[in-house]
Each structure stands twice: as structure tokens, then as C-alpha cells.
Amino acid sequence: MTSRELFVAFSTIVTKEIRRFTRIWGQTLLPPAITMTLYFIIFGNLIGSRIGEMGGFNYMEYIVPGLIMMSVITNSYGNVVSSFYSTKFQRNIEELLVSPIPYWVILSGYVLGGVSRGLAVGFIVTMLSLFFTDLQIHNIGITVSIVFLTAVLFALGGFINAVFANSFDDISIVPTFILTPLTYLGGVFYSISLLPDFWQGVSMLNPILYMVNTFRYGILGVSDINILFAYGMILLFIVVLFSVSLHLLKSGKGIRS
């Protein structure tokens, strides 16, 4: 395919993905908006006012970056896992497999679709947070780049989950039993400096901690971890997951007999 044809094919997949999650906005965009508003009210306003400061900021200011990042992570992951699995389940993945689109374009299209939903939800949650606090962005470059890279990483994770999934139950196992606990324990609601040394060490093994803290650094200018190390780790994970996803697509795992 020529580069122009590749671009048309890529934008077709991305457009289809965006059309899908905007068509069912009541299932994709509205629930995180409601959930995060409840977090802001309960944890930020009602409980947060009794907690006092954390990392030099009031509790509401402290948790807003974490909650935005949590929305981005779950939605970029959720979009690709549900969309690609449905495509497999309905067999319309065959429309893509018979076409001349290279596998890396198929993968990139689905990933950008997931990133789009992650960023859309992240934007909505950010707008809602403005009703509860003033957001002063410390470093726009870090804020935007880390949220984008995190969305890419979890979109790739969602893709791999979808490839291995054999039922709709399988697409909720990872988000429920792995993603949510890691996110909650990844410094969304607290600074790991509050933990005993041992648990601080354990927390440092949680990759989501690095993403949440880097994003928090972009907004508030405070972080529990080394920002450069976080970027390096995220980029490494992206390269590894992209390569694994591409290999799975090429080998036809779960999509070709």
C-alpha cells in the first residue's frame, strides 16, 4: 500500500473506533464522569476536608491528578479490550484480516482509538474537577506527554487482553483483579511517604505509581518518584507491549485458526 493508502486505512480504523465510543456515550463517557464526580464530592470535599494537607497541597488538589489518570488508564484499556474482543466475537475482524492493511497499522489504529477515549474521558474529568478545585499546571509538556504515553501503554494492554479473551468474562478479569487494585495502590489517594519503608518498597514495584506521580508532578510539581526513570520505564513497556501485540496479530493468535 502507498503511504496515502496507509493513512486512509489508519484513519478509517481510528474514525470507526471514535464513532463507536461516541455512539454509545452513555456507556463510555457518562459513567466515568459520574463516578469521578462522586470521588470529588466524597473523598475530596467531605472526607478530604478532615484529612488536611498532603504533599503541601490540600487533599482535593492532591487527588485530582490521580483521579484524572485513573480515568485515562481504565478507559484507554477498556476501549480497546471491549472493541477488539467484540470485533473478534462478531467475526468482523475478518474484514480487516482480508484487507491489505499491514498489522502495525491495524494495531496503531486500535491503540489510537483507545487513546482517544482515554483522553476524552480525561478531559471530561478535568473539566469536572474545576468545579471543585483550581488546577495550576506546573509543567504542560510533562502533563500532556505522560497522559498520552500512559493511554498508549494501557491501550496496548487492552489489546493483548482482547487477543487472549475467549468470553466477555475474560475481558473484565484483568481490569477487576489487576488494574483496579494497582491503580488504587498506585498513589492516587495518598503519598507513599505515608507508608512504612517495607510497603514503600513494594509500592515502587507498581508501574502505575510512576504514571500517577509523573502526571501529578506535571500538574502540582510534587512527586514521590524520579520522573526520568518513569519516562524510561513507560517507553520500555510501550515498546515491549507493542512488539508482543504485533507478534500476536501476525501469528493470528485468537483470530485465525
Partner: peptide, 19 residues
């Protein structure tokens, strides 16, 4: 094909896959 898509969208999307 995706049963929830419109007929025209199914065809036009497939054309897009061919660039």
C-alpha cells in the same frame, strides 16, 4: 459484519481498509 452498523458505513469502512 457488525450487525449494529449501518449498511453504508459497513461498505465505506471496508473501502477505507483498502486505502
Amino acid at each position: 459484519f457488525n450487525m449494529f452498523e449501518k449498511v453504508i458505513d459497513i461498505i465505506v469502512t471496508q473501502a477505507g481498509y483498502y486505502g
